[in-house]
Computed example of a mutant assay.
Amino acid sequence: MDPLSITAAVVGIAAPAAHCIHLLLSDLQKIVDAPETLNSLKTDLISVDQTLASLQAVSDPQWQLLGEAVVTQSKTATTSCKESCERFKTALGRWTRHSEDGKLSLRDRAMVGFIKQGYIKSMSEQLQHCKLTLTSVVGIATFSLQQTQATGEMMATVSQKEAEILDSIAATDKQLTEVNAKLGALCIAKQEEDETEVDRASAISQVAVEQTALGESRKLLEELLSGIQAAAVDARKDQAQVVNNFGGQNEGMQIGVSYGAISGITFGKK
């Protein structure tokens, strides 16, 4: 991979995604009497925006260590987040078309506060998982496999990172199961009162996108897990090659690791 092209590609994806988040946040903030579901969504958007800023700060050498598969899947996760924000912004415009001056009409409040709770929840969950996945990428990127730590500290850090990724994979699997069930229920559910066919199709599409994004995130987490497990193997090799130095007096018994019989030992000064 060309380091310059990696940085350009990541920034070229993350910056437009952040821009879409800012536009959606601006629309949400204009609704002065927004229901709690929309206020919670604003918090999720801010969190993802901060994570995207961290992603853009990952250096060229760190991307090289992560590998091409992680780079590609990170771009996929970021693009999916951007496209979902664009769709949600369009949907929000339809839901609030009867409102003025930032105050929701009774009809639009019912649409946003009740009928579209499932859509909003799906969007919120996708944002939360996007943050989880990209935070994992940034976390592993900042953990240099070439750092000069004591071996014990290195092993502890590797084990901690491995546990974090395994927890993220377990959370992804659980969410995938829930989303699969949700998508099936949506496909057979009756159309809500005041809900247009466009709204219904949009809601189903959002959950389908969430399902796809979760699947891609799992692949990315598996790549990160593979990398951190390889780091664990390297750390254990380092642990098996300890060199002890006892000063410049050329005395004492000095052994790194010995797997065979030891003979011809002389104690004392030469």
Rank of each mutant, 00 (worst) to 15 (best):
D2K: 10
D2F: 05
L4M: 12
T7V: 11
A8H: 06
G12I: 01
A15L: 12
A18Q: 15
A18E: 13
C20S: 13
I21C: 09
D27R: 15
V32Y: 00
D33Q: 00
A34E: 00
P35F: 01
P35G: 01
N39D: 14
L41C: 07
K42P: 05
D44F: 01
I46E: 14
D49A: 11
Q50D: 12
T51M: 03
S54M: 13
Q56W: 04
A57V: 06
D60C: 06
D60M: 10
D60Y: 04
P61E: 08
Q62L: 08
Q64F: 10
A69C: 13
V71W: 08
V71D: 08
Q73C: 04
S74A: 04
T78S: 02
K82N: 04
E86C: 09
E86D: 11
F88I: 14
T90I: 07
T96D: 01
R97I: 12
R97L: 11
R97S: 15
S99R: 00
L104N: 00
L106M: 02
D108M: 00
R109W: 00
A110R: 02
I115L: 01
G118K: 08
K121C: 05
S122T: 12
S122D: 13
S124I: 04
S124K: 03
Q126F: 03
Q126H: 10
H129I: 09
T133P: 03
S136D: 09
V137H: 03
G139D: 12
F143S: 13
Q146V: 06
Q147C: 02
T148F: 02
A150L: 08
T151F: 02
G152K: 01
E153R: 14
M155G: 05
A156F: 04
K161F: 09
E164G: 02
I165N: 03
S168Y: 05
A170V: 11
T172Q: 12
K174W: 05
L176T: 12
L176C: 13
K182Y: 05
L183T: 08
G184M: 05
A185W: 00
A185N: 06
C187F: 10
C187H: 07
I188V: 13
E192Q: 04
E192P: 08
E195W: 01
V198I: 07
D199Y: 00
R200Y: 01
V207G: 08
A213E: 14
L214H: 14
G215Y: 13
G215Q: 15
E216G: 09
L221H: 06
L225G: 06
G227E: 06
G227D: 05
I228D: 04
A231G: 06
V233D: 08
K237Q: 09
K237D: 10
K237T: 10
D238M: 15
V243T: 09
I255S: 09
G256D: 14
V257S: 15
G260A: 15
G260D: 15
I262L: 15
S263H: 13
S263F: 09
G264M: 07
T266E: 07
F267K: 11
K270F: 14
K270E: 14
